[in-house]
Amino acid sequence: MSDFFTVYHHLFNTFLLGSGYALSQWVVMRAGVFSVATAGLASIGAYCAAILTTKLGWPHPLSILAGTLLGTLTGLLLSVPLARLRGVFQAIATLAFVQIVVAVGLFSDSLTGGAIGLNAIPILVGTKENLLALLCTIYVLLAIGATRVGRAFEAIRQDEAVASSLGVSVTFHQSLAFGLSGAIAGLFGGLEAFQTFTLFPNTYGFGLIVAALSYVVLGGRRSVAGPIVGTAILLILPEVSRPLADYRNALYGVIMMLVIAFMPRGIVDTGLLYLRRRRLAAKAAAESRQ
């Protein structure tokens, strides 16, 4: 067992961080916002945390907290102008946001190290912290799902007009979702900063957008387990065999095309739906026998 963990230690941490980003992507979509800002928000969290510790000597938990708060704040700020826009246009605007963050990261090299990277960040975070952060995130997202805000999110995602006809403020909840997405992305960005030694602006670019989206699409957009399962599958598959690792991106591409065409709800949600229908059918059959 301990061997297993030394070999797969790195992969497991990648999975925990990936799950975090996937959940950040998931939570905005849960409230019906098509944002891809997660990558940019993670970048802000990571650089904020790393800079505070390497340049100002802040203790790393405080830096990570600051990164989380800055991510939250950025998410909330983004949500204000974006409330006016509809689906695809929200996606393009947040894509622009991610590109701006990358470009600014590359440009302001005195602060961020630019393309050479922000170096010599102490390695202070490991599996324990990642796991704790992921569990806390999952708890909050499950709590939302089980209470009032979750019902509002669900209503907005499915039909904004219905939601507002019942007193649900679309703007408020979408801002809230943006804030949560920023908090989660900022938190995991901050954690990542303290386990990679060097940060590059391009780590949080188009590639991370695609990764986070594909985790969520594969796993499912409704239940909290969806993005986590999606992340696990997409990270483990390339480890299974060498060719899959060489063509990792093509593999992601094929999976994205197949899932959206044949299983648009994703693996977990489709599975849950199947189980529920079977249970209902069994119940109905039992009732008709009586």
């Binding site: 708890y139 909050v140 499950l142 709590a143 939302i144 089980a146 209470t147 009032r148 805000v149 979750g150 019902r151 509002a152 669900e154 209503a155 219905v162 939601a163 019942l166 007193g167 649900v168 809230l176 949560l180």
Partner: peptide, 18 residues
């Protein structure tokens, strides 16, 4: 249940923290 939303007492922080 979404119909009850208007008269619910739960605050947003209470919902987030479960």
């Amino acid at each position: 249940m979404i119909g009850f939303y208007r008269n619910e007492k739960t605050t947003t922080p209470a919902s987030l923290l479960g």
